[in-house]
Amino acid sequence: MADLLLWAAVIVLALTAAGLLRLLRGPGAADRIMAGQLFGTGGAAVLLLLGAGGAYAAIDVALTLALLSAFVSLTFAVYAGRAGTRQALGRGEE
């Protein structure tokens, strides 16, 4: 059972890693943030699978991660509306 869950973790990690290509390619900030979000979700899933596989502390880590990725997203939401943001986000790679 634990081994199966570990394999599930491997697959989820591989899939989120593929989503990373979006982070690399952009082209815009929106896509980058989406890739980051996918990573947050995927990371939480991987930790949950590890946790259910026996490393129970991983659940607490996933909890922290989920809470704080909500925090990071909200922070970004606040700053995304402010001056200077547009330049930083740019229109993607030149």
Partner: peptide, 15 residues
């Protein structure tokens, strides 16, 4: 994660 997703969606859509 749902909450974070909702915020990001709303914001990303705007961006």
């Amino acid at each position: 994660v749902l909450i974070a997703g909702a915020v990001v969606s709303q914001r990303v859509a705007r961006v």
